[in-house]
Design a protein around this nucleic acid. Structure first.
Length: 580
RNA sequence: GCGCCUGUAGCUCAGUUGGAUAGAGCACCGGACUUCUAAUCCGGCGGUCGCAGGUUCGAGUCCUGCCAGGCGCGCCA
C-alpha cells in the first residue's frame, strides 16, 4: 500500500461521516510545488464544501483534526490557504522508499504496468536519399528514449526504422549518381531535372570510380545482420553499367547508392546510440505481395472504388477531407497503400500497440491512415501517431535550408562533430515534443561547455570523486540501511531524499504521456539537490554515523542519476574531462 | 479558405494534466575556493503568461472569438 493509498483511504473513511462516498468525493492527492506546503496535498475540502454548505477552510480544519495516522508514515497534517490539507511524510517512510529504490523494489516495480506487452515504436524512417539530416536527430533522441521508458514500465518495446526504398526518389537518386559518374568517366550525360544535387552524390561517384567489381561487393558487408540482408551490392564493374540498357543501368546505380546511404545512415544512428530492432524495407512489401493483399482486404471492407482509371480509398468515411488514391491510373500502387500494407503487417506481427513518430508535415497523413486501419478491422487506438515539431536550424543568424534535393543541409554527423552527441541529445530532450524550436548552431557550439548536460554529468562525477576519496580514507562502502539513513538531520539531506524518491513517478509519467523531456528536467533537479547537499554538508567528516549515512545517500543518488542518464542515452562519467 | 501546432523574463525553454507567491539555464550585477573537483554554491535584477471575453472556490493550463508565426491541404513521399 502506497502512502497515497493510506492517506486516501483514511480521508474517504472520514468523508463517509458526512455522507460522501467515492463518487461524490474523489480524493485527489498531489505534490505541492512549494515544499513549505508539505509532501502531499489534497483539495477535497474545497471540492466538497459547497455541497455540504460549509466554508472550505473550516471544513478542512474539522477534517484534518479527525484524521489518524501512524506518525512514522504521516508525520503531520496541516491546513493552509483557501482550504488545502497538507501532509508531511514521516522520515521512516521516506527512508523505506529510498531503500526500495536502491534494491529495485517497491515503487520502481509497481510502475511496471506494461505486463510484457509488445509495442512497436517507429521513428526517423528518413528517405534513403542522403545522409541523415539533422532534423532526424530530434526524432532519434525522442524515439529511443521512449523505447527505453516503455521498457522501464514493463512493456516489451521494439525500435523500428522503415526504409522507403521502393519509391521514385531512389530511382532518381540512382540517375543522379549515374550522371555524376558519367562525367567523371569522361562520358558526360545531362543531370536529371530535380536530381539530387548534394555534394555527397558527387563524392559517392568519385569513390565508385575507384572501385572494381570485387571492391563493390565488399562495400555491402558493413552490416550483414538479419536486418540488412536485403542490402546488397550490384554486380559488375561500374564503368560497364553505363552501357547497359537504361532501366538496368539505373537499377544498378540506384542499388549502389541505396547500399551506401543506408550504411551511412546506420552508422550515424550507431554514433547517436540509436539501435533499431528492425530495419523494415518497403520493397519487401511489394515482393511478398503484401501490398496487393492489403488492397484486397480494403476491397472486402467495401471502401475502395474506381474513378478515372484509378482506385480510391473512401477515407472520407473515416473523417478525412477527401478520398485518397491507392492505385494510380497507370496501375502503380501509391506510397499510401504501401504504408497501409506496412502497418497491416506490423499488426500481424503481433504488436499490441504501435507508435509512429512523424514530422509536422505529415500530420495530414493521420486521418487516412487511421481510417485505413479501421477499414482493415484493426482496433481503434492501435496506431498512435506522435507529431514531433520541426527543428529550425540557424547558422550565422540565418535559417539553414534543409532540402535534400538541393543538398543544402546540416547532417547529423556534422552536429555530432560540432557539439557532441551527448550535448545534442540532451538539448533535444529538454524540449517538449510539440515545441517549435530554433536550434542556433553557433550558440550550441559556444555553449557546449556551458550546457546544462554538464551540470548533471558533473553531479555524477562529483559523487564518484567523493566515494573515491572516502575509500582512499579507509571507508568501506556498504549496503545502505535504515539505521544509518534515519539519522540524517539536515534539510539539504532530506530535500535530496525526497527528490530521489520521485524517480518512479517521473518515469511512469514520462512514458505514459510520451514526454521524455521530463527526464532531463528531473535529472537537473536531482543534480541541483545533490550540489546543494554537497555544499551544505561535509560528507566525509569527523562523525562516523553521519559520514556513513551521507555516503549511503551518495550511493543511492549516484545510482539514480546513472539510471536517468542511461534512459536519456547520455554517458555518466566517473570524472570530468578538462574544460577548455 | 480549411486543418494541425505554437505564442510565458532581453535570449532559449520548463510549468507535475485546474491549485497556493509563474520557475530554470544563458546574459547582467554582487558574494563564497588553504576544503570531498568552483563545469559548483548563495544573493540580486528581470513578467499585462499574444489580446478580449467565458466557465468556477481557483485559469499560464479548459471553452469561444480575434491577432501573430510555423507546417500541411498532389494519381509526391
Amino acid at each position: 500500500m502506497t502512502i497515497q493509498d493510506i492517506i486516501r483511504t483514511e480521508l474517504q473513511r472520514r468523508l463517509e461521516e458526512y455522507g460522501l462516498f467515492d463518487e461524490d468525493a474523489a480524493v485527489e492527492l498531489e505534490k505541492p510545488r512549494d515544499p513549505a506546503h508539505g509532501d502531499l496535498s489534497t483539495n477535497v475540502a474545497m471540492t466538497t464544501a459547497k455541497r455540504l454548505g460549509r466554508k472550505p477552510r473550516e471544513l478542512a480544519g474539522e477534517l484534518a483534526a479527525k484524521l489518524q495516522f501512524d506518525r512514522d508514515v504521516v508525520a503531520s497534517v496541516e491546513i493552509a490557504g483557501p482550504g488545502f490539507i497538507n501532509f508531511r511524510i514521516g522520515r521512516r517512510h521516506q527512508v523505506a522508499q529510498l531503500l526500495d529504490l536502491w534494491r529495485g523494489e517497491g515503487a520502481i516495480q509497481d510502475i511496471r504496468v506494461g505486463g510484457g506487452r509488445r509495442i512497436n515504436v517507429e521513428f526517423i524512417s528518413a528517405n534513403p536519399t542522403g545522409p541523415l539530416n539533422v532534423v532526424s536527430a530530434r526524432a532519434g533522441a525522442f524515439g529511443i528514449t521512449l523505447v527505453r521508458l516503455l521498457n522501464a514500465i514493463g512493456y516489451d518495446a521494439h525500435a523500428e526504422y522503415y526504409v522507403n526504398d521502393a519509391g521514385r526518389q531512389v530511382h532518381l537518386l540512382g540517375r543522379s549518381l549515374r550522371a555524376r559518374f558519367s562525367e567523371l568517366a569522361g562520358r558526360p550525360e545531362p543531370f536529371p531535372e530535380d536530381g539530387y544535387k548534394g555534394l555527397y552524390v558527387a563524392r559517392m561517384a568519385e569513390e565508385l570510380l575507384a572501385l572494381d567489381s570485387a571492391a563493390i561487393q565488399q562495400q555491402a558487408g558493413v552490416f550483414n545482420d538479419e536486418s540488412f540482408q536485403r542490402v546488397t551490392a550490384p554486380e559488375g564493374d561500374a564503368r560497364d553499367w553505363l552501357d547497359l540498357p537504361p532501366d538496368e543501368s539505373a537499377r544498378r546505380f540506384s542499388k549502389y547508392a541505396l547500399m551506401k546511404i543506408l550504411t551511412w545512415q546506420r552508422q550515424t544512428c550507431r554514433r547517436f546510440g540509436l539501435r533499431f530492432n528492425t530495419w523494415y524495407f518497403e520493397s519487401e512489401l511489394h515482393e511478398t505481395g503484401r501490398v496487393e493483399r492489403a488492397l484486397e482486404q480494403l476491397r472486402k471492407s467495401g471502401s475502395v472504388y474506381e474513378l478515372d482509371g484509378a482506385l480510391w480509398f473512401r477515407s472520407t468515411d473515416f473523417g478525412d477531407e477527401k478520398d485518397r488514391v491507392v492505385v494510380r491510373s497507370g496501375g502503380e500502387p501509391t506510397y499510401f497503400l504501401a504504408d497501409v500494407a506496412y502497418h497491416f503487417h506490423k499488426y500481424q506481427r503481433g504488436f499490441e500497440h504501435a507508435i509512429d513518430f512523424l514530422g509536422p508535415d505529415h500530420h495530414g497523413h493521420i486521418p487516412r491512415m487511421q481510417g485505413a486501419m479501421r477499414a482493415l478491422g484493426i482496433p481503434d487506438g492501435w496506431l498512435e501517431v506522435q507529431i514531433l515539431q520541426q527543428v529550425n536550424f540557424v547558422e550565422n543568424g540565418r535559417p539553414v535550408d534543409m532540402s535534400k534535393r538541393e543538398g543544402q543541409f546540416v547532417t547529423m554527423d556534422a552536429l555530432a562533430d560540432d557539439v557532441g552527441t551527448d550535448v545534442a541529445k540532451y538539448i533535444f530532450l529538454t524540449r517538449r515534443p510539440n515545441s517549435h524550436l530554433d536550434f542556433d548552431l553557433d550558440l550550441a557550439r559556444e555553449q557546449s561547455n556551458e550546457n546544462p548536460v554538464y551540470y548533471v554529468k558533473y553531479a555524477h562525477a562529483r559523487i564518484c570523486a567523493v566515494l573515491r576519496k572516502a575509500e582512499a580514507g579507509g571507508w568501506q562502502l556498504q549496503e545502505p540501511v535504515e539505521a544509518d539513513l534515519a539519522g540524517l538531520q539536515q534539510d539539504a539531506e532530506w530535500n535530496l531524499v525526497r527528490e530521489i524518491v520521485r524517480l518512479p513517478e517521473v518515469i511512469l509519467g514520462a512514458a505514459e504521456s510520451r514526454e521524455p523531456h521530463r527526464l532531463t528536467a528531473y535529472a537537473a533537479d536531482l543534480a541541483g539537490c545533490f550540489h546543494q547537499f554537497y555544499h551544505q554538508c561535509v560528507i566525509v567528516g569527523e562523525n562516523r554515523e553521519v559520514t556513513r549515512a551521507r555516503l549511503e545517500l551518495c550511493q543511492v543518488t549516484r545510482k539514480v542519476l546513472r539510471d536517468v542518464l542511461d534512459l536519456i542515452g547520455v554517458e555518466a562519467p566517473e570524472q570530468m574531462g578538462d574544460k577548455e
